[in-house]
Design a binder for these strands. Structure first.
Lengths: 139, 139
DNA sequence: CACCTTTTTGACAATGATTATCATTTGCTT
DNA sequence: AAGCAAATGATAATCATTGTCAAAAAGGTG
């Protein structure tokens, strides 16, 4: 019931701040390893484990969205819409993504649950494709 | 465009036959390792790698459906509907699942693609919950 | 500021599902 | 029956992710 902003990370550290900044700098879905590489490339000294932990913590508070790509790796990006449940249309090539809301889809999903006698139904919907830029490049 | 039944596995072996039989014996989504264990328990001598390869091959021909659970592991079960694209409502507890078709959902998904200029759009929709039996047991 | 307690960090080891190797075995075809 | 390509399986390798734990840093407090 609480929709007050999540307590965020208990302590703010140089590393966490760096991750937050990095997240603001890109609209793309990247893996923990890619974020780590990006941070290092930009001069931030930060351990891989810390990147993993920070992204996971942020995912739990809803500050970042986490999805899984076809290979099973988890990808993260800052969440632009913390107030409502939403999904993504993500580019398989470059990770660029847009957030989408599916009013009807939510209802459809929950309706299915009842129809088959399932409780505590959750749904996972992800759309992938090639963004305009990548469509042009690759054909 | 070909919707003739897929060529199946090139060569039928004792191991592949065993996997096929096992798949027919259960409605649940199980991991490759679980299928392997089940096969061993029922007296089939079969290597783990073979189970992995066979399930993957069957998934490519569409004979089995493959989904990923919350932990990222791949689960398989025989496909009951090879003719149409469909999704699943799966029990997080026991793996029991029902196939569902979402006429409107398919259209919704492809429509979103166009709206944002994405090409080659694919969608992945999975519903999970607790089946009637597990709801009763666990509360 | 100096101190104290708790959290965080990071280098490294460990985990675990999946995949690759490759010598041996087996299905099929002639 | 012979030959060959495909399949098998024991095992090693991969690789994203998680666990470990001593050292470092954050945020009160007086």
């Amino acid at each position: 019931m609480s929709d007050a902003p999540q307590p965020a990370l208990p302590r703010m550290t140089r590393q966490r701040a760096a991750v937050l900044v990095a997240l603001e700098s890109s609209e793309d879905f990247l893996s923990a390893q890619q974020w780590h590489e990006s941070l290092r490339d930009h001069g931030s000294a930060i351990g891989l484990a810390t990147v993993y932990r920070t992204l996971q913590a942020l995912a739990e508070t809803g500050e970042v969205d986490a999805v899984r790509d076809a290979a099973g790796e988890v990808l993260y990006r800052r969440c632009g819409n913390r107030t409502r449940h939403h999904h993504h249309l993500r580019c398989r090539e470059c990770g660029a993504a847009v957030e989408i809301e599916g009013p009807g889809v939510e209802e459809w999903a929950s309706g299915i649950g009842e129809r088959y006698g399932y409780s505590h139904v959750e749904h996972m919907i992800e759309l992938t494709g090639l963004c305009r830029r990548c469509t042009t490049k690759e054909g």
